[in-house]
Design a protein around this nucleic acid. Sequence first.
DNA 1: CAACAGGTCGCTG
DNA 2: CAGCGACCTGTT
Length: 291
Amino acid sequence: MKLYEENNLVILEDVENFDARAIFTCGQAFRWYEEKDGSFTTVHLGRVLNVLNEKDRVVFKGTNLEEFKEIWVDYFDLNTNYKEIRKTLSGNEILVNAMEYGKGIRILNQNHFEMLISFIISANNMIPRIKKSIEVISMRYGKFICEDENRKYYSFPTVEELSNATVEDLREFAKVGFRDKRIFDTVNMILNDKIDLNSFESLETDVLREELLKFSGVGNKVADCIMLFSYKRGEVFPVDVWIKRVMEKLFIKQETPVKKIAKEADRIFGKYAGYAQQYLFYYGREEKIGK
DNA sequence: CAACAGGTCGCTG
DNA sequence: CAGCGACCTGTT
């Protein structure tokens, strides 16, 4: 991996596993925009970044080398060796297909609070609507960052900022539906109990899950997503309807309850189950496996 | 117009 | 504690 700055752009070369489309559309992130030139623009920690895949390199616009190393290397999980992970997982023939299909996927390390709220919204919901709700929430309660020819950008609100939202506002403007009270209760629980989501980083995975399950709107699937996309728990295997279908169709070969699917995944994929989940999700949804 | 979509909650037995 | 219906919203 080679990283350097040139003409106000940060360039990444010699990275074999980086496909912006796969990264942003594999279901882990909601704050990205696909641009006309095929690049993707994303917002993270109050910063706006444009990412363009070229033939043999990735071009980042809107940052500099120093900030890139400080913020974006961790965000894009660039210190993780995906080739090695894929090699470890390659004992499974079915998974090899999916991995080849989505070999440019990387698991982003996103903000804890943003993931908590985003995945509460994701419950029984669809990606376009989830994105819209998060956009409205950022616009109304976050801070204005900047503006370009395409749109205005706002940061995802802090806990304090989002505590300005009433249940009614969340429903009326953000269109979160019955998740309005869950968001409101979760925000107020963090505030009232003075919960520090950063302090969760050091918890063991099972303890972390227990803590996350205490929030309103957080069940097993949502907790697993938060752990995988924000707490670097590569061993967890979130089971949604898509993954359920993929696992039933390709691996277990019969209808199986969600709880047993997670167990099976742990048995088959081990400590890299979360990475396997991302490859399978992307593959399964693109190819409509089981539908 | 009914069904459905990236689950969770709350109520039963 | 497993099972099951209800649930916003917007699209098909």
